[in-house]
């Protein structure tokens, strides 16, 4: 049973390295999906926004961790 629970823990860790980053990525993809579905942006702009948001999310996540580790 320990092995099975370890497998599930490993699977969780694979996609949730940082909870805020994971939620931000999911939120970002959902937001772009809504923009594209309502035709508020062109398909190309949607793709570029997705890439840009992902880079911003990465930067925020790295700087937040740096700040937290630097203070402790």
């Amino acid at each position: 049973m320990t092995i099975i629970s370890d497998v599930f823990k490993e699977l969780f860790k694979m996609f949730v390295a940082d909870l805020r980053q994971t939620l931000a990525i999911l939120g970002c993809v959902s937001f772009i999906a809504i923009l594209l579905q309502k035709a508020l942006v062109s398909p190309l702009a949607g793709g570029l926004l997705l890439a840009l948001f992902c880079l911003v999310i990465l930067a925020e996540s790295v700087m937040r961790e740096t700040r937290v580790r630097g203070q402790s």
Binding site: M14, F15, V16, A17, D18, Q21, T22, I25, L26, V29, C54, I57, L58, S61, V62, E65, T66, R69
Partner: peptide, 17 residues
Amino acid sequence: GVLLLLFGMGWLRKAVL
């Protein structure tokens, strides 16, 4: 794509840190 984003960006974040 979403799973790769979650996984890949997790690895990239850790590697950068």
